[in-house]
Design a protein around this nucleic acid. Structure first.
Lengths: 348, 348
DNA sequence: CTTAATGTGGAAAGCGCATTCCATACGGAA
DNA sequence: TTCCGTATGGAATGCGCTTTCCACATTAAG
């Protein structure tokens, strides 16, 4: 009790000795074995275990069994604000399934992701969940990443990607293109014609898809967006802020700014306000994601609700299901939520 | 390549054979051992490892060494929005330190926490970080939790608590009382006299401390808050929303609502708006935490900035440092951020 | 040139557990 | 009563890796 790190963890053998049985029996009694143990021994072993405060050594179990039951997740480039919903969804589902999940963040690059997956593999987890952040071009590192993942799967592991349709693994896909197109369509329906797109990083897959959706959705309603009206910027609040500044410098200001995400939209709003504009009177703004904490702010932001937490849960479900021959695809779609920030033009 | 789960992970022995050395040598070459291996063997082993795609089995290492190098973290009651900052801080720091962290969420109760810590212990991690959520009274389950943690420490593990001063472990403390008191003091300085407190759950430690700080800070400036003006509610947006409803039913409405957190404040604001009030003209509102995404909303929320991500990082630093005789305490304080939501009364 | 000190590879033991295999006890059928 | 099938405990083996411990050079010291 005095010196630190003095005691040593109690092992299964300790329990067995205490209960007066063999380690084999103790093992069978304490964990779900196919073999049965006589009732009397059963209770004696359990009693000994609680008396001694025995906690099974998962590492040892993993090596004896050849594979652990843990789950691993790589979060690609956590954004302080934004990392939450999908990770929270996964964690909550894991809680319900009584699992632990090991998280590791990769600095947003596929190179890191490959290394990180390799590190994860060393844990021999049951499944690896990959969240977000591929880039547009299929780089050499992307290939490495896929290879690494494929090797893992080859060894009996499960791989689930979130939001990354196109990988040869089980995938939970949030249809970014459709979400953006729906929103754009709705905006066109409200009468907006001159729109500027805050497009996020040029090389991020998600950003790219959303921009594509915006453009397509508007085009469908006869609204063309000249390439000069697609502004690239960071994927966060500051990105939106500075891109909005750029926007202000245009001769003919837009009627509507379509931001690639709510966070970017918030940054833009801040910049517009700073310039003395009154929202939504002077400028309409919409985003994508429907970040919860933003639902109540003024002007309430028009957005597309994307079921991120549900996607996390779905990913975990897939991860827990046994591998099948064909990669499965769970597709989730968002729906447009009209709020005050886009009152519309014709009707106003 | 055809059937799934066909291949089997390559082991250290495979590498050794390929390199024409003994497993011992391979082990020494591949991992940081105190022993040296001849240069030639060194490169041969490494070459063999990459050729074969060897990935060390951490579980086996953990059992051989007696302890793993992983970090574990229990997040107490993840709130979809709010879980972010501290977890993100920890994860980022872990990334920098090249560590993985296993997260597990406990349903906000100490009972769950005790079970969860026990599960974590089975991994034999190097450290366990405990984030948030103790209750006011020291229940039997809290004791169990501390016991569990103490046993873990006794076995050589490190324990770090965030925001939970008073446990016999290394602690990163965010001074909730002081934060609330500072804010309250500032508000009193702005001339507010009739204030209602949205106090969160009656039994949550953090909430309790903040309410205490509010009351004390106001009292210091001669402002008394009758107990009837402390409204208890959930710790989230909906809690704030409904508590604000209660608030509206009062005869003499308050001039200022002090919410226990930004999220609660946002809920309250939503309710007030719904009632047709104009903010901040009709009602001033302030919160605590300074949630990033809320910084730009209108009316910009007066709050106390609490360095949650930094706390996460600090916790990880502590976790990586060797145990010392005395539990260490890292105290972090917030600072008041005045924004539009509390324009003040005298000066306005 | 001998002897001790040092460096380095390999054999073997061990980490905590699951599991296969063997031994024993028991029940029922003949 | 004998024989076989079944149930269940225990010894032994193995999982992948680290770490003594030992053997064998080399080299430095005498």
């Amino acid at each position: 009790m005095d010196t630190p790190s003095s005691s040593t963890p109690v092992t299964l053998e300790d329990v067995a000795r205490r209960a007066g049985v063999s380690p084999s029996t103790a093992s069978r009694a304490l964990n779900g074995s196919s073999r049965k143990v006589r009732g009397e021994y059963q209770v004696r072993v359990h009693a000994a275990a609680v008396e001694l405060g025995y906690i099974a050594n998962t590492a040892a179990q993993a090596v004896a069994r050849g594979r652990s039951e843990h789950l691993a997740m790589v979060v690609n480039g956590i954004n302080d604000d934004y990392f939450s919903p999908v990770a929270a969804g996964v964690l909550k589902a894991a809680e319900a399934a009584d699992r632990m999940v090991t998280m590791i963040s990769s600095r947003n690059s596929a190179q890191q992701a490959a290394q990180v997956v390799s590190a994860l593999r060393s844990q021999r987890p049951r499944a690896i969940i990959l969240a977000g952040g591929r880039s547009v071009a299929s780089t050499r590192w992307e290939e490495r990443l896929v290879e690494e993942l494929a090797a893992f799967q080859e060894e009996g592991g499960r791989v689930v990607a979130i939001s990354e349709e196109g990988m040869p693994f089980d995938t939970v896909s949030l249809d970014n293109v459709a979400a953006a197109a729906d929103l754009a369509g709705a905006m066109a329906g409200l009468g907006y014609r001159r729109v500027t797109i805050l497009g996020g990083p040029a090389d991020a897959r998600t950003a790219h898809d959303r921009v594509r959706g915006f453009v397509a959705g508007l085009a469908e309603h006869g609204v063309e967006v000249p390439p000069s009206e697609v502004l690239h910027c960071g994927f966060d609040r500051d990105g939106g802020y500075s891109a909005a500044g750029e926007c202000l410098r245009r001769r003919v200001p837009a009627e509507l700014v379509l931001a690639i995400s709510d966070t970017v939209a918030v940054g833009a709003i801040a910049r517009f306000r700073e310039a003395g504009m009154s929202l939504p009177a002077d400028m309409a703004v919409a985003g994508i994601d429907d970040v919860t904490v933003l639902r109540d702010v003024a002007p309430a932001l028009t957005t597309v609700r994307l079921p991120w937490p549900e996607a996390g849960r779905a990913a975990l479900d897939l991860a827990l299901r046994p591998t099948e021959a064909e990669p499965r695809l769970v597709r989730m779609t968002g729906h447009v939520v009209l709020r005050e920030s886009t009152p519309g033009i014709g009707g106003g």
